[in-house]
Amino acid sequence: MFERTATIASTSGLHARPATIFVEAATAYDGLEITIGRAGELAEDAMDATSVLSLMSLGLEHGDRVVLRSEAAGSEQALDRLVGLLETNHDA
């Protein structure tokens, strides 16, 4: 399993606009199952990273830490790109 940790940078948290940007990027990796969950929580509790509703249900705020996971070979670059999106302030 591959995983990356990120800190939510958007000042208003992961609301509709940054969540949509993130989900569109995650969906572009067709065939990769990617999950997102709060850092420190069980991997089994993580949500589908390609679902805006799932992502927004996490209620992530500025400064929250999350873990992205994928079991697919070759997913490291996808996770790195997605971390970059989460660590960008889309409210600026």
Results as ranks from 00 to 15, higher is better:
15 H>Y: 03
15 H>R: 02
15 H>M: 03
16 A>T: 04
17 R>C: 10
17 R>Y: 08
18 P>H: 01
19 A>Y: 00
21 I>T: 04
22 F>P: 00
22 F>V: 01
24 E>V: 15
25 A>D: 07
26 A>T: 09
27 T>L: 05
28 A>P: 14
28 A>L: 14
29 Y>E: 06
29 Y>I: 08
29 Y>W: 07
31 G>A: 04
34 I>V: 07
36 I>C: 02
37 G>K: 02
38 R>A: 11
39 A>V: 09
40 G>Q: 10
40 G>H: 11
41 E>Y: 06
42 L>R: 08
42 L>Y: 07
43 A>N: 11
44 E>N: 02
45 D>E: 09
46 A>R: 15
46 A>V: 12
47 M>F: 09
48 D>V: 08
48 D>Q: 12
48 D>T: 08
48 D>W: 07
49 A>P: 00
50 T>M: 12
55 L>H: 04
55 L>T: 13
56 M>E: 06
56 M>I: 07
57 S>C: 07
58 L>W: 01
58 L>T: 02
59 G>I: 03
59 G>S: 10
59 G>M: 10
59 G>P: 15
60 L>Y: 00
60 L>R: 00
61 E>A: 12
62 H>V: 15
63 G>H: 14
64 D>E: 06
64 D>G: 13
65 R>T: 11
65 R>W: 08
66 V>E: 00
67 V>D: 04
67 V>G: 13
68 L>N: 02
69 R>Y: 05
70 S>P: 10
71 E>V: 07
71 E>R: 09
71 E>L: 11
73 A>D: 10
73 A>P: 06
73 A>N: 06
75 S>I: 12
75 S>D: 05
75 S>P: 07
76 E>Y: 11
76 E>A: 15
76 E>C: 12
76 E>Q: 14
77 Q>I: 14
77 Q>E: 12
77 Q>C: 15
78 A>S: 13
80 D>A: 15
81 R>D: 14
